[in-house]
Structure formats: structure tokens, C-alpha cells
Design a protein around this nucleic acid. Structure first.
Lengths: 225, 225
DNA sequence: GATTTCCCTTACACCATCTGTAAGTATTTT
DNA sequence: AAAATACTTACAGATGGTGTAAGGGAAATC
């Protein structure tokens, strides 16, 4: 369950936000403005921070800055519509998204889900040496080219890329594909490996999966690091 | 073709970057550091800015700040590995991604493509009233739920959402589906509409597409704005 | 060098999804 | 009531992902 911290001084608005989030099964923690709030927030390790920009003590922008300095996840800023233009440049500096108040409930939730999704995949691409792999979408990047792998291809390549230059056993790969409870066939793995190799060839990634007879497979080290 | 502006004072590095980008079919424009560079960059309307952080005149971070203030697209920062820690907090404040020098060519390109992709979809979600629609992926958001529409469903809903509360003619929707050159069938449109309505029901979006007999269809105005 | 063991490839069938066609039903208008 | 318009359902083709099965190939072993 995603944990969301709300920083908002208007009590009515605050309650409304909590209500909206909790009804969607999100963990909502509300805070009012106070000194050193950024550290407190960071300690709670939220998945997202909902930050009002009009706070009495300090500007939401300052908090945003502090939060980002601690490496905290996505920040969604709230601002009133009539002040939008004044503050837009500030928002762009730190926030990951912003929304004007009053805001549509579903719009707010959509943005939140969007941000959670976007940041769920951090720390981002897996480095496979001569290519990169998005572990969430199984999108494979090489140079300016990219393609989306099928589920099975993605699982295998991810397992190999996560243990780069290490041998990964067939059993381990089978587990990646079908879990522990279900055992399909080592031949099925073999077929999927062939398919993956064929797909890799589309991006000129030939001979990148090395066979270690009797042990398993591993990614060949890249040519030029 | 994506236009990328490079801000880098080291001539060797600059040429290398230009070379890498151009070989990938990207439009590369290189600039060295000078006063008011941000305005010049903004005038070129780049799709991405590749920004070195160690510049003689001013810090890359300042440029980043100025660029973001003008609403310029994604910024990818370059920093040398040994100064990474010193500057990480700065990068987080403005840049959309960062990379350490020296960097792997493919890794650089992968990041660039990633950013271009991420920002291609701006300004983001289409507001459909009681739902939101990502016009690029045809992902439909309502509350915390979401699902991915098929291509045809997405095209229809997008056309309706873009003209919210306006009647969209069948002919216009047909054009959205199959273009001007190919005319399939109004019945085919009808079937796809039924399918879209059925899919919308999965998110409890009932009766959201209104039929205007003899004219076309329109999105019903949302209940609570 | 022959045999065995392991690895690889190919072709097939199944399933799911998306799609247009066609026929029939329901609703509104005249 | 009849006609026009809108809707629903079922069907078939196309595509893509998947496991199965059978056979070819390469490497190790004897």
C-alpha cells in the first residue's frame, strides 16, 4: 500500500484529501507546516508527497527543495488556480507534477497513480552492458533503438542482467518464469531462450547470452565499457 | 527528428557528443557557455537539453534553473563521477535525469530516448470529466483504478474527450479510426463504440457516452466537477 | 571414432486479444 | 404501424505469446 504524506494547513482541505486518499486504499498521513518538516517527512519514507505551496511558515517550494535534497520520491504540488502563473516557475524547479486547487478528485488520484507508477520503477534501467532494460515494462534499449520484450523474454533477460557476468542456472531461470510451485520443462525454457536470442538479434545483439554447459547461462561481458 | 542542445565547454567531449547523437539521427546543436544562454536555448525549442554541470561562466545548475523557469523540456545533466556526491542535491532540484562522465555511449542514448519518450506525452493526461486518459498509451484512469484500452477504443474515447460536451459526428470518429483514405463502415464504428462502452463499465463509467440521434456522440458532462 | 549427453532449432497446436462483417434486436421518430 | 436509426451479439480471420514434441547439432566421454 502506498504511503502518501499530505502537507496542508487548511484543515478543511486536509480532511478532504485524507478522505479521498483513504477511500482509495492509500495510506494517508497529514502534517501541518512546521520547522524541519522535511526531515520528519523523509523519516517516514513516503511513496509520494502531496505538498501545498501556500503555507504560513515557509513556502512549499522550500520544503520541496529540502525534500529533493534528501532524495525523497515524487512530489505533487498543489496550488490555487489564481496564483498559478506566479508560482509555476517555482514548481518546475522541484516538483514532479503540480495541480491547481480546487481539483477534481479523480484527476488528483490519476496524477497520484501516475506518479507512483512512474517512480515505482526506480532506480530505473538495468544496465546490461551493451544494452539497457526497463525491468517494469521489459523495454529493451540499445542506442536509439528500443523494443518491448514479451513477458517470458523479459523475465529471462532481467534475471541474466541482474547477475551480469555470473552464471544463472536453468533451475533459477525456470523459477523466474514460472515460480517455485510450478515446474514446466527445461525444454520450454530452452525454447524461450532461443526466442529471446532471436529477438536480441533484431537489435544486433548477437552472441550476448553465453551457454555454460551443464551449469546454465550468463550474459557475455560487453565489448566496450 | 528530435532536437537536442548540448551545453559543454570541453571541445573534445563536445565533438564526441555531437558525433554520438548525429549518428543516431538526432539533431544535435552544441553551445558553449555564455551569458543569457538559457534564453537562447529556449528560443531553439529543443526536445532535450544535455547540460554539463562544470562550466566556467556559471554553474550548470543555474542554467538548469533558468531553463526550467522558461518551461523548457527535459534536461539531462552530465557530471564527473568524482564530483557526483557534491552536486547530486543540485541535480535533483532541476534536472530530469543525470549521468556521470565518462559515460557509456549506449547508456547515454538510452537515457536520452527515455527522456524523450517520457516528455513526448506532455502536456499529459486528457481530462474526461470523471476520468482521465493518457493519449499516448490509451491508459484510462479513474480513481486509483486504471486499464489500457485497445487502439480503437482509445481513439474513439480520445476524440470524444478532446471535444468534451461537444457532439462528435460519426464521420469524424470514423476518420479517427481509419483515416480519410479508407472508409470502412459506420456499423464497424458502432461495434467499436459498444465495445468501448462495455470496457468503460469495468471502471463503473456507465452512460458516459451519449447518443445524439442523427448527429453523433458526445461525452456526458461529469456529475461533480 | 562411436556413443552418450546436453543443447539448439523448428514446426505445431492452443489460447487470448483485437478486429471487421453480418445478421438480428431494440429504440426512437414519423 | 412503419420506417429510420441505434444497438447487441455471434462469427471468423489475424496476430502474438506460449508449451509441447520431435529431430538436428555440438560437445564431452568412453
Amino acid at each position: 500500500m502506498a504511503r502518501i504524506i499530505i502537507v496542508e494547513d487548511d484543515s478543511w482541505m486536509r480532511e478532504e484529501l485524507i478522505d479521498i486518499l483513504q477511500k482509495e486504499g492509500l495510506e494517508a498521513i497529514a502534517m501541518t507546516d512546521f520547522h524541519d518538516i522535511a526531515l520528519q517527512i523523509a523519516a517516514l519514507a513516503p511513496d509520494l508527497v502531496l505538498l501545498d505551496i501556500n503555507l504560513p511558515e515557509q513556502s512549499g517550494f522550500d520544503i520541496c527543495k529540502s525534500l529533493k535534497a534528501t532524495g525523497i520520491g515524487p512530489i505533487l504540488m498543489l496550488t490555487s488556480r489564481d496564483k498559478l502563473q506566479d508560482e509555476l516557475h517555482g514548481l518546475h524547479l522541484g516538483a514532479d507534477d503540480y495541480l491547481t486547487k480546487p481539483c477534481n478528485r479523480d484527476r488528483l488520484l490519476a496524477r497520484i497513480q501516475n506518479l507512483l507508477r512512474r517512480f515505482a520503477g526506480q532506480p530505473g534501467l538495468i544496465d546490461g552492458g551493451s544494452f539497457s532494460l526497463d525491468p517494469n515494462t521489459f523495454t529493451l534499449y540499445k542506442g536509439s533503438q528500443s523494443l518491448v520484450l514479451s513477458a517470458n523474454e523479459g523475465k529471462i533477460l532481467l534475471a541474466l542482467a541482474q547477475n551480469r557476468a555470473e552464471v544463472v542456472s536453468k533451475a533459477a531461470l525456470c523459477e523466474c518464469l514460472w515460480g517455485t510451485d510450478q515446474y514446466i520443462d527445461e525444454n520450454a525454457l530452452q525454447v524461450n531462450l532461443t526466442r529471446l536470442r532471436k529477438t536480441l538479434r533484431q537489435l544486433n545483439l548477437e552472441n550476448h547470452i553465453e551457454t555454460i554447459r551443464g551449469q546454465g547461462y550468463r550474459l557475455r561481458r560487453q565489448r566496450k565499457p
